[in-house]
Simulated assay, not measured.
Amino acid sequence: MTAADLLIDCQDVARTFGRGPHAVVAVHGSSCQVRAGARLAVTGPSGSGKSTLLHLLAGLEQPTSGTVSWPASTGPHDIGLVFQGNSLIPSLDVAENTALPLVLAGIRDDRARHSAEAALALVHAAELADRLPEELSGGQGQRVAVARVLAQAPRVILADEPTGQLDHATGQHVLDALLAAADRIGAALVVTTHDPSIAARLAEQRPMHNGRLLPAEETS
């Protein structure tokens, strides 16, 4: 690996919400690096700080102390974030939802539609293009949420409990789609999860406990 492979560098980061006696320390003393090709699972129960850490890595939250930087990119917009819920807009069909971030970024409608359709095909959801979100199952909605991120061709995909609201089989299918799509576009992938069967499918595991990211565990 070279310096150019370092996509996210997180050093001794802390994030505190509130002040005084009511302050809550969500993340503290945590460091990690995300390099090109990474397949990382951040594990731990609800409330351990996983989501806050992911938001720090994405640039959605600013650290209270420590630093987060994106050395080999032009900033957080090279990062795609998949939330636990699919966050689709009810009045837009699947293709429109998938294309929306591109349209908002100023890309012409026809080019955005083409990129959206290609991304839906990557997660085996092309046949859903004309459906409304209310017509989708939970697994289908999450695959569309993955496609919406892929359409932007990010260098890093951060997925926050993407299978947390799904049954085991559906969750595995969504992870299949995430892994295959990340391989296809050459993106690093970081997944937060409390499910050991999901974490075991990624090459590296970093447990979180009480807001602190612990040393890496290599899967067999």
Rank of each mutant, 00 (worst) to 15 (best):
F83R: 03
V103K: 15
D130R: 08
P101T: 07
R131G: 03
I89N: 12
G80F: 06
H77D: 15
A95I: 06
G29L: 03
A129F: 04
S51V: 11
D110Y: 01
L92V: 02
R111S: 13
D110M: 01
T67I: 08
V34F: 08
D130V: 00
P133E: 14
R39D: 06
V82M: 02
G80Y: 04
E61Q: 14
S69C: 07
L120P: 13
G138D: 11
G138Y: 04
H55W: 05
I79V: 15
I107F: 07
V123D: 14
V94H: 01
D78K: 01
L128R: 09
K50V: 02
A125V: 05
V144H: 01
A99G: 13
L56P: 04
A118M: 14
K50Q: 05
S137N: 12
V82T: 00
R108S: 14
L120V: 09
G138I: 01
T74N: 06
L40D: 01
A105P: 08
A129V: 06
Q140G: 13
R111T: 14
P71W: 05
S65Q: 14
V103T: 15
T74Q: 08
R111F: 01
T67K: 10
G37T: 08
L104H: 10
A112E: 02
P76R: 08
L57N: 06
S30G: 04
S30H: 04
T74P: 00
N97I: 10
R131N: 04
G106L: 11
A105S: 15
A105H: 07
